[in-house]
Design a protein around this nucleic acid. Sequence first.
RNA 1: UGGGCCGUCGACUAAUGGUAGGUCAAGUGCCUUUGGAGCACUUUGUCUAGGUUCGAAUCCUAGCGGCCCAGCCA
Length: 574
Amino acid sequence: MNTSTAEAKAGGSPAPEPRPSNFIRDIILDDLKTNKYQGRVQTRFPPEPNGYLHIGHAKAICLDFGLADEFGGHTNLRFDDTNPEKEETEYVESIQEDVKWLGFHWDGLFYASDYFDQLYEWAVKLIKDGKAYVDDLSAEEIRKYRGTLTEPGKDSPYRNRSVEENLNLFERMRAGEFPDGSRVLRAKIDMASPNLNMRDPVMYRILHAEHHRTGNKWCIYPMYDYAHGQSDSLEKVTHSMCTLEFEDHRPLYNWFIQQLGIFPTQQIEFDRLNLTHTLLSKRKLLQLVQEGRVRGWDDPRMPTLSGIRRRGYTPEAIRNFCASIGVSKTTGSIELAMLEHFVREDLNQRAPRVMAVLRPLKVVIDNYPENQAEEMDAVNNPEDATAGTRKVPFSRVLYIEQDDFREDPPKGYFRLSLGREVRLRYGYFITCKSIVKNDRSEVVEVHCTYDPATRGGNAPDGRKVKSTIHWVSAAHGVDAEARIYENLFSKENPSDVEEGRDVLDNLNPNSLEVIPNAKIEPSLANPTAGSRYQFERLGYFCADPDTKPGKPVFNRTVALKDTWAKVEKKHGAR
RNA sequence: UGGGCCGUCGACUAAUGGUAGGUCAAGUGCCUUUGGAGCACUUUGUCUAGGUUCGAAUCCUAGCGGCCCAGCCA
């Protein structure tokens, strides 16, 4: 993606991947034209290490890194770690892993906490300039003094302390003389501003908490709003992309930059990613993990990058998805089908095909010799001629998918039923002759005959068959666990919650189905964790890290498109 | 009800005063040793009302609708 232009020229391949136009790219193009930053493009991706990255962050990452890459710029990874109570080293590690996995490389690796000394000095300067003051009001009082959306706020009684007193108090805040919550440092701006962020925002609060990097050096910590803009400025960030909700904060960031006379970073806001059936709130995701509603941050049902990675998504699929959804300021929600399209598209090209039966139904081929077994040639990937072929063992007793046999086939059903002939993929044509039922009248065994002339699946007489089904030899197949996922939330908008209920009440109770005894072809017996396959006619599957020798575990990444299921559903539930 | 931002097919997004296009979804057909994949075709859209203009999705005015903001979270 990043090198497509060069490769296209060198290799003489067709036109390079077109860069989708978006308003931020246009701004950069314009800034380059007017030489606003001497040709520099410096961006940053600034996560708070208080949780794992999710697919929404991928959009921001692709934007921040992608735009810088395109214009020969640089991108920093900066952890905005201004709240020691919520941040942990585990998160900074997972975030780095996820960014790398997505395929991006940062130039500088920074932390807002790297700037704590500088930020403190600047706070002192603002105090000296009469632009900041120590406030003794309680949190609740500050809230009351702030006014409302429609009424202006009131000045704090401490607003006009002398510079000396402010300096003294702020120094003593830092020295640890005061308990948490007793005082804050505030910017002196305008308590009547229609923009609430400008009503003397808090710059520093007292927090006697250990910081994941600075340890116990500090007991006062800068607020995000006081740290973010200056951090960008210190890194000479030219284009600082963030989500829409920070639009109202931009005047404040600009105010600090102006008062301090430092490098003027330009902030540009865009709409955050929303995905149907998906919750993208770090806070709620944390709750899912903490309450054990999922198996962890990397549960394959989670929208976290670690979760969808475990599920089997590829970085390429995610990047293509991000490129295709575009960037704008309109608040909207992408259909999950869009994401799924891009994994299918990617995996279709690269995933080796393999045969696996999720819900086995025994098939006995009555006219096939008892102790015979044959090795059938199977194509590994019809989309990739270089993928070669493999041998798949065939014998008298086979498993097929329960779904591929109907005692009473509905109209339009092409698969096996009494008297009907189908093709076993890469095997033989078989015709169903009889069935065996258990005492609950369920079909437990299907008896067929095969046509020896159709070996490999070709009929020399040119006779056609309406369907081809997959199978696994009973004697050679291996047991595997398959984990089938549905949306964590069946509701299109999980946040659409009734009065008095919680988002988590919308959790889909059927989001995970474990199939303990699927049958897989022997070539799949010992998969390496993370390897991806297409189980023919079923979907894409990825070997889970829970896989043990002799006990493979597969996650279904996404099902194949199922035209028949659609038709059957349309013709009424049967 | 103050402030900020935003309204283009069902979803997302282009068109930067000059042919409303693309992707996903949906549908139809072709093809097929995956009812997969692929190919072809089709349906559906500029929030409303005025105005400027030879010409408006684009500019202006007024409405209507949606999102965000009252953390010592980010």
